[in-house]
């Protein structure tokens, strides 16, 4: 599998990362060589093997349905550059 520059730019856009043309070329090379390396796995026959989602053999930890509100809105908002009456204020995201 080989990626082209369009795909690299699309991935960058989805990740909200701006790439210069030069950077895009570098990433294209890097990512393609990573893909080549991973593709070695295709040599292994995985018919009838269930996909593994996690390598840990322990079970999912569950908690009881109890609520504890430990933060005040002031604490949650303290890193926010812009806020109003308890709300985060962000640039408008719809027209």
């Amino acid at each position: 599998m080989k990626l082209n520059t369009n795909t690299i730019n699309k991935i960058a856009k989805l990740a909200r990362i701006r790439l210069s043309e030069k950077e895009a070329d570098e990433f294209l090379k890097d990512i393609n060589s990573i893909l080549d390396w991973v593709e070695q796995l295709n040599e292994v026959n995985t018919d009838n093997v269930e996909p593994l989602t996690n390598i840990s053999s322990s079970a999912l930890t569950k908690r009881r349905d109890e609520n504890q509100d430990i933060n005040s809105s002031d604490e949650i908002l303290q890193n926010s550059p812009d806020k109003l009456e308890g709300y985060f204020a962000v640039p408008k995201v719809v027209e």
């Binding site: 949650i76 812009d82 109003l84 308890g86 204020a89 962000v90 640039p91 408008k92 995201v93």
Partner: peptide, 12 residues
């Protein structure tokens, strides 16, 4: 979205 012409307010 409708409280301010340039901002969106977010409640988590």
């Amino acid at each position: 979205h409708d409280q301010n012409p340039t901002k969106t307010y977010v409640d988590l």
